[in-house]
């Protein structure tokens, strides 16, 4: 039997659905169905400890959420912390990518070293930084004491502003190598001929960057920006283990707020309602990402 390749595909037209089915079922059981249950649970009262039945309470959890100052504070924290992390990480990524795009000796080795923070698991990262920021013995104090006027070791994770700063810098440190590598790949795809032509025309370094490099990598940076928003909105372990959301809720993001409501105060239905809010937010960002990718695909086609 030697069917033409078209015939083969017609014979197998069920195959893709058979292949996709187990995956859709798997993600359905472990991701979609829990989320649907969470949406249902947000309209009820769940009491696991006493074994009382789940009762329908309508919008009560949502009414509570909208009146909850800590929820709004968490939203504000998420916005400010994410914005700072994204700015610091993307600027560092762009700077290092431009630097590492130049030819130099041991480039491959230096690049591998730069990728280590990205490859490091979150839990040991937190262990390192808690040690580095230890008010008593932390090596960060040595650096801080170089600043004139600083005579005491700062309370890095116990003071609100310092805690926010520490969380931002540590998150950016962990995130920027990934963005840097992606920008580097984009830099290397910018046509060398454009640079050569511009140099012949007498363009200086800044003109080259502004008129050739930047337009060449802007689509990549756009996509990275949305990815960075997603990653930092999702982030949990790093902040949770560094500060737990404290001091005084200063670093409590929406994700930590949900966690604390559910697993510190056993307030499952309220956590479910805030989870629905988190779901809506991440859905909006995800749709933004998809629209952006689709637009890019159209431009390339």
């Amino acid at each position: 039997m030697k069917p033409s390749s078209g015939k083969v595909h017609r014979r197998l037209h069920l195959l893709p659905y058979l292949l996709a089915l187990p995956i859709i079922l798997y993600e359905g059981i472990f991701i979609v169905s829990p989320i649907l249950q969470g949406i249902y649970g947000s309209f009820t009262r769940i009491d696991l400890g006493s074994g009382k039945p789940q009762i329908w309470v309508g919008l009560a959890n949502y009414a509570r959420m909208f009146a909850d100052d800590l929820f709004w504070q968490a939203l504000k924290n998420t916005l400010t912390i994410s914005a700072m992390v994204i700015i610091v990480a993307l600027v560092a990524a762009l700077a290092t990518a431009l630097l590492f795009n130049r030819p130099f000796r041991f480039r491959a080795g230096a690049r591998a070293l730069m990728m280590i923070p990205w490859a490091f698991p979150e839990v040991p990262v937190v262990m390192i930084f808690i040690w580095i920021l230890s008010p008593q013995f932390g090596v960060a104090n040595v650096v801080a004491r170089l600043i004139p006027g600083v005579t005491q070791n700062p309370m890095w994770l116990q003071d609100s502003n310092l805690a926010i700063g520490s969380v931002v810098l540590i998150s950016a440190w962990k995130a920027f190598p990934f963005y840097s590598l992606v920008i580097l790949a984009a830099l290397q795809s910018v046509s060398q001929e454009l640079y050569d032509a511009a140099k012949v025309d007498g363009a200086n370094v800044f003109q080259l960057f502004r008129n050739i490099t930047l337009p060449g990598i802007l689509p990549t940076i756009e996509v990275l920006l949305v990815l960075a928003v997603i990653f930092s909105f999702k982030g949990f372990a790093l902040i949770f283990l560094l500060t737990g959301g404290g001091p005084n809720y200063a670093t409590e993001t929406v994700i930590l707020r949900i966690y604390n409501a559910a697993f510190r105060f056993y307030d499952y239905s309220y956590a479910a309602a805030m989870g629905v809010a988190g779901f809506v937010i991440s859905l909006v960002i995800a749709i933004g990402f998809i629209i952006m990718q689709a637009r890019r695909a159209r431009e390339l086609a």
Partner: peptide, 28 residues
């Protein structure tokens, strides 16, 4: 196949959801 891009979209969205959203219902 028909539904291929829908399948891709489904994967993309699940990839972007925060883990905590699933945890509370899954714990129960």
């Amino acid at each position: 196949w028909r539904g291929r891009s829908l399948f891709g979209l489904f994967l993309l969205v699940t990839q972007m959801l925060p883990e905590i959203l699933v945890l509370v219902p899954l714990y129960i």
